[in-house]
Nucleic acid binder design. Structure first.
Length: 411
RNA sequence: GCGGGCGUAGCUCAGGUGGUAGAGCGCCAGGUUGUGGUCCUGGAUGCCGUGGGUUCGAGUCCCAUCGCUCGCCCCA
């Protein structure tokens, strides 16, 4: 009981857990491929500045959640808390700002130092797409449609709702922020302590506070709509129109706020009631300033990230594994023939294992335990005739199959 | 960083008011060394999370501590 345990907030993925996890990633990869995205893999740790600069110095991620350490050469290194910053860094590092647009798919582990909860770990996994170099609202709509199709392919779309909002462009947001600060300052004596802090750092986040006191104040708070510039308003109109055109159902939620500073215009979340406090299963938006932060030219971009663990928990059941074939040699003389047979099955693309321990009863037991759909029995009699006994485990029936035809007959 | 719940076999969990630890599932062996799944018989498994206290005696009561879990904050 006091043996070594995984580090707090990390988990082993074994058996069904692993199958669910892999199914989420495989499905996302397949759907996203059909939209023209290419997979990238970047390092799981980066120069700390990649994140501190891009996520915003006042974001919670940077202030208290990063796994940051100094390596042996004295460099400050951070385990990535999210994928987008690293992708933008890679875009710039590889000179790909010269060949836009880039449509990137990403799958891998992320790290955040937090108290673990349902659907939240210190190491967790995301799938992620980024359409970099696309400024038109049609790319936002297409990115969202792509995410929605991933959820549909996973069969979890009926458990989730898409909520969209606009954060406007820079002038819209500055004007709105000023109005919010004025409004909340006037009501500061009724705000929660947390929200008084937010008023200093990021007043937008008061909007999605769960505190009772805050919610009453928020109910009458101004919305961004009257502060949108004509350009920002039209962008949002276009987005909603195009979502309809793509056939993606959504509802507007003016309280959606992104936690990271680099977002503007489109913000969206696919949320669910099924995961307790962690309702967001996929979230994203537009981040036109980020590539520039990384030292590249001004570059528009839009994307989303989805939590693999959270999606895996929403899955009904992991997809079934194809059942293997068990090859069962009887007696030492049968070993070479059994090895040849099992290799032939594998060459034919089948999943096949040998059961070679114990008496025949043990071997058949083993064959059953690995979930085999059939057992190929090879003993002295079979070697003499060149015909194997093949037992179908679902029916219990046993038939004779020439050894040379095993692969084709069992395919 | 702050709150609630829970720690007994590999897993799921029983163990009124203190008397030296149980079930089901799983595992191992045999019934059957040329036939699995079903069935029968037998077996192993535990520093009862850890440390301390009360007591003749603690899984049970008290204190502390660690871990897990759910929630707040924030997010995928």
């Amino acid at each position: 009981m006091s043996a070594l345990q995984p580090v707090r907030g990390t988990h082993d993925l074994i058996g069904e857990d692993q199958r669910r996890h892999r199914h989420v990633i495989d499905t996302a990869r397949r759907i996203v491929w059909s939209y023209g995205f290419d997979e990238w893999t970047t390092p799981i740790f980066e120069d700390t500045r990649v994140f501190s600069r891009s996520l915003g110095e006042t974001s919670d991620v940077v202030m208290k959640e990063m796994y940051t350490f100094t390596d042996r050469s004295g460099e400050s290194i951070t385990l990535r808390p999210e994928a987008t910053a690293g992708i933008c860094r890679a875009l710039v590092s590889n000179g790909l700002t010269q060949s836009l647009p880039q449509k990137v798919f990403y799958a891998g582990p992320m790290f955040r130092y937090e108290r673990p909860q349902k659907g939240r770990g210190r190491q967790f996994h995301q799938v992620d797409i980024e359409a970099i170099g696309s400024a038109e609202p049609i790319s936002d709509a297409e990115v969202i449609a792509c995410g929605w199709n991933v959820l549909r392919a996973l069969g979890v779309d009926r458990l989730t709702v898409l909520e969209v909002n606009t954060l406007g462009d820079r002038p819209s947001r500055d004007a709105y922020r000023a109005a919010l600060v004025a409004y909340f300052t006037a009501h500061r004596d009724t705000l929660s302590e947390d929200s008084l802090q937010r008023l200093e750092r990021n007043p937008l986040r008061i909007l999605d506070s769960k505190d009772e006191r805050d919610r009453r104040v928020v109910a009458d708070a101004p919305t961004i709509a009257p502060f949108l510039t004509p350009e920002a308003a039209r962008f949002y109109d276009d987005l909603r129109r195009l979502l309809d055109r793509f056939g993606v159902p959504f509802r507007e939620n003016p309280r959606i706020v992104r936690g990271l500073d680099y977002y503007g215009h489109t913000a969206f979340e696919f949320v669910t009631e099924a995961l307790g406090a962690q309702g967001t299963v996929m979230g994203g938006g537009r981040y036109d300033g980020l590539v520039e932060e990384m030292g590249g030219p001004p570059t528009p971009a839009v994307g989303w990230a989805a939590g693999v663990e959270r999606l895996a928990m929403l899955l009904d059941a992991p997809p079934p594994e194809p059942a293997p074939i068990a090859v069962v040699p009887v007696g030492e003389a049968a070993e070479p023939a059994a090895i040849a047979a099992v290799q032939a099955l594998r060459q034919a693309g089948l999943r096949a294992e040998m059961a070679y321990r114990g008496n025949l009863r043990r071997r058949m037991e083993r064959a059953n335990r690995i979930g085999a759909r059939a057992a190929v029995i090879l003993g002295d009699a079979e070697l003499a005739t060149g015909v194997a006994q093949v037992k179908d485990f679902s029916t219990g029936e046993q038939t004779e199959v020439p050894i040379a035809e095993l692969a084709s007959r069992l395919a």
